[in-house]
Design a protein around this nucleic acid. Structure first.
Lengths: 347, 347
DNA sequence: CGTTTTAATGCAAACGTTTGCCCTAATAAA
DNA sequence: TTTATTAGGGCAAACGTTTGCATTAAAACG
């Protein structure tokens, strides 16, 4: 195995101490009053010898790893992977590396992953928390470790959170369907008590309430395979004969929902108007194109990184709990346009 | 800041040496003949004290980081993100963590990222190489570092590669279009000399050759925004009036292509049959559903990890260069069915 | 009873950095 | 001429492990 050159090797070759080399290489020559001449020599030698610092040793000594641990629900989910992409871009500019892992929204898995990150001494945590990890998150806070939660959070914990306005997103989507003349609207959501889901439910319910309609909600268990989801949705539709609109609370529920509606030979939007939560690159290519509540991926990522960097540079624990709420954007496409409007398919 | 307990702390408390503690904690008690009694004591104490090893220190001493660096073209691309997902799953079972980064298929970026990984002392590299990084890859090989290339590779380099049979994939797709009666078929591909692309081109050309047709190829420059891509494709179609079939060499080219064809008001597949390379969860929901050459994501990931682990456990440099070629699967949907077949839309 | 073996453990170096403190010579101040 | 200062840099500990090489006491051997 090849051998990398160390700071000591440089020191020996140049007859200086490794301290001097270290100072120079860290740009502290001035501050430490190393002569300009030495500085040149050392820099030149290091460059020519292809010196590369050993980050591991550096980490051991400084306690900083220049690494961030990021926990998402599923890195293959387009929402999370596009956030990961943006976060990575910003992180690399700031000279940070990222460990990603998928939690599958599972408590045990998430707990284990947090442990792994701790062992690896990551400098900061970016987490889309799964249910039941309040204690672990609290422990991170207690240990003064920088943590940002995103997409959802625990209302009781003093964390820094970055989320979208789920209530309004769902409210607007529901209002839009109502305004388009769909009166009997159902909500297909996850059987989850997580805040992002209950907010969406509340937003939907609020809009229904305004019209004096009572909500009809289908809650799908987590980790159900797509066919089963479609099956449940079919049943839901059959059991609500007069339902002529559906709001889907997540990306993949909408996908399964489309399947279900198609297989019932209902026409969208003639027979049923639909809106999905969380936009998708492909929704515009579906036929009909699917209306969706778009999340500002780039802003979310930027806020996450901004808040994380703030937490990391703050004098330990100085960063206050806070929740950044970003607006969603309703992207109106064909799937939610009432027949009367379809004469002008300008969208 | 809180302070984690170290092996020395345990040793002190228990009046043993840190060596003993280390042995016990690493399961070498037997081998090092630590008495069963001591073993119990130490294990019990460590557990109760919540001891967690410092991976950084461990890495420094052993030279192993239990970390893998993975370079993909774009983590937000569903193909790469789903591979990342599988790889992560296997890796975590093997107790490895993963750094992912997106190269954007850019030489400079990739070079920089490889440097970052080297500095971080990753134990192995999984790379979807961008053009122009032959030297860096060769350098990794020279330094006996475990490297697996996937999706594409450099035919000249003695690396371990995991790819799909791009030639046959494209050949079968082209044959399928021909067999469905589409005679004048174009290929929309990337302006890239990378092996996966040239293989797809060759497969397409071979099928055309069998029928005595001459290929018509549109090469799209890298990193062109979707609208521009669509524009070029429109032009391509206009300039080839008799063209009635198109094979798209990548996922996102197909997406832009659909846009282009729609805006020209051509009907798929009546006016034009199409097939995309690389399947997508949503292709089945498009209207018409899009035929695609599916890549075996799971197998790719498994092979990648298998080969990587083999490289890592081999006595340095013992792992021979090899190229694992996995078959693709043509998923036939409506977009490639000639009118005559559409009477039986059984697919 | 002297000599080997073996069982059970300890010592301390090493991994490559960073950093608080020390040292020496020369210059400036008094 | 003393005494402070300053410039320029070196020493060595420390970060938390792992591991080659002792070391010691008891047991086994001859």
């Amino acid at each position: 195995m090849y051998k990398k050159i160390s700071i000591h090797d440089i020191a020996r070759q140049l007859n200086v101490s490794s301290a001097t080399v270290s100072y120079v290489l860290n740009g502290k020559a001035q501050e430490k009053r190393i002569s300009a001449e030495q500085e040149k020599r050392i820099l030149a030698f290091a460059r020519q010898a292809g010196y590369r610092p050993n980050m591991v040793a550096k980490s051991l000594r400084t306690g900083k790893s220049k690494t961030i641990g990021m926990l998402v629900e599923d890195i293959a989910d387009p929402f999370f992977s596009s956030i990961a992409r943006e976060v990575e871009k910003i992180a690399s500019q700031l000279d940070y590396k990222i460990f990603y892992s998928s939690t599958e929204n599972d408590t045990r898995i998430t707990q284990a992953l947090i442990k792994v990150f701790r062992d690896a001494q990551v400098d900061g945590y970016i987490i889309a928390p799964s249910p039941g990890i309040e204690e672990e998150v609290q422990a991170l806070i207690n240990d003064q470790l920088p943590v940002i939660l995103f997409d959802r959070y625990f209302p009781g914990l003093p964390t820094v959170n970055v989320v979208v306005d789920n209530f309004n997103g769902a409210y607007q989507a529901s209002r839009h369907l109502l305004d388009q003349g769909f009166r009997h609207i159902g909500l297909v959501t996850l059987d989850s008590a997580q805040v992002q889901m209950s907010d969406r439910l509340a937003g939907y319910a609020a809009a229904m309430g305004e019209e004096g309609f009572k909500p009809r909600v289908l809650k799908i268990p987590y980790r159900l395979p797509p066919e089963k989801i479609a099956g449940k949705i079919k049943l839901f539709i059959k059991q609500n004969k007069d339902m002529n609109g559906v709001l889907f609370a997540t990306n993949y529920l909408a996908i399964s929902g489309l399947d279900a509606i198609n297989s019932l030979h209902k026409k969208i939007p003639a027979d049923m108007g639909i809106v999905g939560f969380d936009d998708n690159t492909h929704f515009s290519l579906f036929s009909p194109a699917v209306t969706a509540v778009a999340q500002p991926v780039q802003e979310i990522s930027q806020q996450v990184m901004k808040m994380l960097m703030a937490s990391m540079t703050d004098i330990a624990g100085n960063s206050r709990a806070a929740t950044v709420v970003l607006p969603t954007r309703l992207v109106i496409r064909e799937s939610s346009l009432q027949a009367i409007n379809k004469k002008y398919p300008s969208v």
